[in-house]
Design a protein around this nucleic acid. Structure first.
Length: 312
RNA sequence: GGUCGGGUAGCUCAGUAGGCAGAGCAUGCGCCUGAAAAGCGCAGGGUCACCGGAUCGACGCCGGUCCCGACCA
């Protein structure tokens, strides 16, 4: 079955169940427990960093043991030196879910990366890439020049992009110039929340507790040999633009480069991870389709019953 | 004990020849279409260490007190 651009491959009776939540909220653990107790369930990771091989500890990737107990998808798709984008994820994950469902099993998506999830379950059509156009735009020093040009070519897109956001201005221009059509004609975008039949369950902790969990997890990662993992990655060659910016990896690479003491790197890592968790919450809470569950102590047991209704 | 620095936002520090107090980071909120663990924006937040004085007016000037640092004895 081909991945139609107008109908997500996920709609209909075989729509997946999705667990969303910020980092360190206990998504993976919850999914594992549910998959084991219900059987015939595959877990599909929706995570921009777990796609990289050899980036295991810092991305909190499900262990080999977990993967032996429950079939996982979306992990270890590319080398950390390779480029990987939302668009590729969209194609990959829709095909994976279609295949899982075709085999008569259930797909349980575990989502931490908001844009990737939108690409997976909603109508997000990526218009294409024009590297030569992009390169040329990158050479223009004046951001105001670029913004004015976008205002001419695509006033609608320009009105939605802040004049200071160079990256988005460049991408919109790249599409306008490359395709000859306005970027804003691409589709409804990320702000549309159509009824797609996908059940999304959100894990919600209070801020302070989540912050504590983040801190504890960072220390746990360090105890588990995170520094050694980063050292090996760093020695095996340079990472792709995306992989290089993964939380924790970035800070530890800077430490190994001598820019940070280890203690400072760990502190920065905790702060940045906490900020990331908040940003994830902000992304997800815009989606009115998500059913949030306030967690007091243990997400696996507190979400279990709700999940059971849909995994039957 | 003496001399010299310094005490300003949660943190690190600017600042004013006296006229309603600033930045970066942190925090809160918002945005997000091929880097998204990325990128961008907005906001809240101060008895300018304390006490007294001169001045129309002090964070700034004068006197004193306390605290921190360096050096000298």
């Amino acid at each position: 079955m081909s991945t139609s651009v107008t109908t997500p491959a996920t709609s209909g009776i075989f729509a997946p169940i999705v667990i969303v939540g910020p980092t360190a909220s206990g998504k993976s653990q919850t999914a594992m427990a549910a998959a084991i107790s219900h059987g015939n369930t595959h877990i599909v990771a929706c995570d921009a960093m777990q796609v990289y091989r050899r980036m295991d500890i810092g991305t909190a990737k499900p262990t080999i043991d977990d993967q032996r107990q429950v079939a996982h998808h979306g992990l270890d798709l590319v080398n950390p030196r390779e480029r990987f984008t939302v668009s590729e994820y969209q194609t990959y994950a829709r095909a994976a879910i279609a295949q899982i469902h075709a085999s008569g099993a259930r797909a349980l998506v575990v989502a931490g990366t908001g844009l990737y999830l939108t690409a997976l379950i909603d109508d997000l059509n990526f218009p294409g890439e024009w590297p030569d156009v992009r390169a040329e735009l990158g050479r223009e020093p004046g951001i105001d020049v670029l913004y004015r040009r976008l205002q001419e070519l695509d006033p609608i897109a320009a009105s939605k992009i802040e004049p200071s956001n160079r990256r988005r201005i460049e991408r919109a221009l790249e599409v306008c110039i490359g395709s000859g059509r306005p970027f804003s004609a691409t589709g409804p975008g990320t702000g549309a929340y159509p009824d797609n039949g996908v059940v999304q369950i959100g894990i919600l902790w209070n801020r302070e507790t989540l912050a504590t969990r983040v801190e504890q997890r960072v220390h746990q990662m360090m105890d588990d040999g995170f520094l050694q993992e980063v050292r090996e990655l760093r020695e095996s060659g340079s990472l792709s633009h995306t992989a290089r910016q993964a939380l924790g990896y970035k800070e530890l690479i800077e430490h190994l480069d001598g820019e940070y003491s280890l203690a400072a790197a760990v502190t920065a890592m905790i702060t940045h991870t906490r900020q990331f968790a908040v940003r994830q919450e902000r992304w997800f809470r815009r989606d009115p389709r998500i059913r949030w569950v306030h967690i007091e102590r243990d997400p696996a047991t507190e979400i279990g019953p709700l999940l059971a209704e849909y995994l039957r």
